[in-house]
Amino acid sequence: MREEPNLRYISELPPHVHSGITKDKVMLRTFLLMCIPALAALPAMGLSALAHIAIAIGTVLFCHYSLAYTELLSKGTTSYKSPCSPLVAGMIVGLSMPIAAPYYATVGVAALTMVVFKWLQGRLCGRKYLNPAAASKVLLLAALSIAAGLGTGMMFYPAHLRLDLWTAAGFDEVVAFYDGRSALSGALSLVLLKDHGWIGGASGLAVLVAGIGAVLWIRLKWRIVVSLLLTVGVLAAVMSLVTGGSMVDRLAFHLFTGSVIFMGFFMATEPQSTPLAEGGQYLFGTALGVGTFLLQQLNVLGGSIIVLVALNLVTPLIDTIGRRRPYGHGGVR
């Protein structure tokens, strides 16, 4: 043996093997899963849906590469190497836009998502506390509401302001709106194929399939989704019992609109801005359900993102409760 080893190896901490599940793979899987509701939107909403999605993705990618280029010029290196995360952000923006929204709104939300709520938020806060797509949409729609009136701010559906969801007769009018738009009944149209509202919610069923796929394939925070849907479902059922009318229609309307089902699976589970503790996730989903349902009742359809952003802000607090008991502390494993 040599007195002084002349051959130095890389000395490092364990582990030395990895599962192979990388951030890019997770993002790519998310993107692929979201293609299911995106494709389902085509027959229901037409090429306009595809245009919104393409514009959102294109804008986000443009911002991504612009930021990367700027970083490269100033630092000589860039942290913006992979386009996988922007792809997902772009897809979420596209799918969370109402089909009636003008394309400039999509561009605005996509640019805000990437520059302000992904890049700037990350730089200033060290991580993303707010869901980028939801926060961008809330910001833009608030600005539009102030500048162009509440009708425009209401996701470009001013008719929503006249709805009455507190009575059976008022609710029947809402369902009748869907009844008259296709061969499907109101409830079926809400679940299977609708040409109104969020692009991502065109087919509630497609979102459900993609969402279940995401639970299995990327392990999204299913507790949030389950508690959200359960809460909204229970409240809708109670409302139906109190006001009368069809419970099926009530459930279909409150659960299968894009702002609930798509938001629930693909926005409310955004990892950075939502709780890590299991109990906290249930609490988060339940609070989101209550807030969403109340806003729906108050005619702020699509208002779930406002509740989501508000809950994002208190996520660090929620993270302090509802943790599992570690092994050896009397907990159940």
């Binding site: 080893p5 190896y9 890389i10 582990p15």
Partner: peptide, 17 residues
């Protein structure tokens, strides 16, 4: 890299001696 013990728990040693 020369890993002693488990690949998940063992450290990599600095040299072959």
């Amino acid at each position: 890299r020369l890993v002693v013990a488990s690949m998940l728990m063992g450290g990599a040693v600095p040299h072959a001696d």
